[in-house]
Design a protein around this nucleic acid. Structure first.
Lengths: 231, 231
DNA sequence: CATCTCATTTTGTATGTACATAAGACGAAA
DNA sequence: TTTCGTCTTATGTACATACAAAATGAGATG
């Protein structure tokens, strides 16, 4: 039977929006009315409109109805790959090296905020990632050993801290910050670049239900580009 | 009546995942079974699991069942604000200035790819955004006048190209690229910075059903940070 | 042993119905 | 006029039911 599916409804509504038959900010017909027009159940229309709402194309409010979004917020969703996978996807050989590993008190600077409530020492790691033995990125990381006690025993010669964490600790939320920095002498040396070169810097802090897990600052080799797609 | 809502189900399933009662890659009970356990309809469980699937916590396949996601892909979703709003949100006065406006053939470099199929000339704009009269970002933009003919008549002294496009042209998909660049002399001058300074560069190309709309390269003043949250 | 077919299982979706909930609208009271 | 309730209305959700579609796995066939 060719029932009208919620996807059909979604598609048609989207078409009308894109063709500007229904303009920005405009109130579109109610679910009942649409259901009748499409010859389907109200619940089906509901499903379609809910989807469109999730996608940001329309805004819905009880009693007020459904309106075409005025400024469809430009949302970019992107996948933060584990560096190893990123390197291997480019057909290169991945390796990494731990430069420093020690217990230190919580840092002040950037991710200082997330560690605000922490009083005990954190595991501090500095490492370099390589692609075909060439430096690819440099990272500085802090890990909360009270929420992730097991990490103390991990041997990072085989697996990177990031990857171990991704595989072993479920994360519920995180923050990101992107910026450009001029490489310091020491950083430049590690990345096989020149002091003062412009490098992309991604800072990230992740949380669990039980508290902060890790914060990391990754500095990519000059010239590196982070790409993503939105739909 | 306190019926168990799909949100309750979602929450409980999520809890079990985070508490590692159900481990990564593990198959979780079928919808029927869960429905019985929760004392609700299968459809309700379905709704909850579908949501969790959308959020990337589980993977579902017909016949195969639902399993806890192995590597919950680290997805960062962030809102690309219109620069004016970003500036005003910081409590500063926004203004902008068009430096150049002309019709040119499609560019080759970066966004060359999206313009590959275009043969006629594009509207080319260069402009600077200011916050409290201080340079904030510099942008270079190409607009497809065949998909967006109306733009030819717009007076950009009152509204920026980006904002006009956001308000007037529905977009269905786009690409992003983040990188760090060293400012060229001319760029530095516009941004009131030093030549060679590290600046964050965001490149973006957007599409419609009818084809490419615009590509833009925004270079932020050195020191600028782009922040986002994931959940 | 390889491969193809088909039954079975599990998720996906459509429907009618019923009730819940938010919030706009409108009128009564101060 | 303002403020406070209350009515109304559109969306949100729950349920039972039924059937669709995908993918696995077992059994038949070469």
């Amino acid at each position: 039977m060719a029932n009208t599916s919620w996807q059909d409804v979604r598609k048609e509504v989207l078409r009308k929006i894109e063709a500007e038959e229904w303009r920005r900010g405009e109130l579109i017909p109610g679910e009942m009315e649409l259901a009748e027009k499409f010859g389907c159940a109200r619940v089906t229309v509901n499903r379609a409109l809910r989807q469109l709402s999730d996608e940001g194309f329309v805004n819905r409010k009880r009693k007020a109805g459904t309106r075409v979004a005025v400024n469809r917020v430009q949302k970019a969703t992107f996948d933060i790959p584990v560096i190893r996978e990123e390197v291997e996807a480019a057909g290169k050989l991945y390796s990494h090296e731990i430069i420093r590993k020690q217990m230190v008190p919580p840092p002040k600077g950037f991710a200082g905020e997330i560690w605000a409530a922490e009083k005990h020492k954190l595991l501090h790691l500095r490492s370099v990632h390589f692609a075909d033995k060439t430096p690819y990125a440099f990272e500085v990381r802090w890990v909360n050993t009270s929420t992730v006690p097991k990490i103390a025993e991990v041997d990072f010669s085989h697996i990177s801290a990031n990857e171990w964490l991704v595989q072993n600790v479920p994360v519920t939320s995180s923050n990101f910050a992107f910026s450009a920095i001029a490489l310091k002498k020491s950083e430049a040396k590690l990345l096989d670049a020149e002091s003062g070169d412009a490098a992309l810097c991604v800072e990230r802090a992740t949380w669990n239900l039980s508290g902060p897990i890790t914060s990391v600052r990754q500095i990519f080799k000059p010239g590196h580009t982070l790409k993503t797609k939105m739909s």
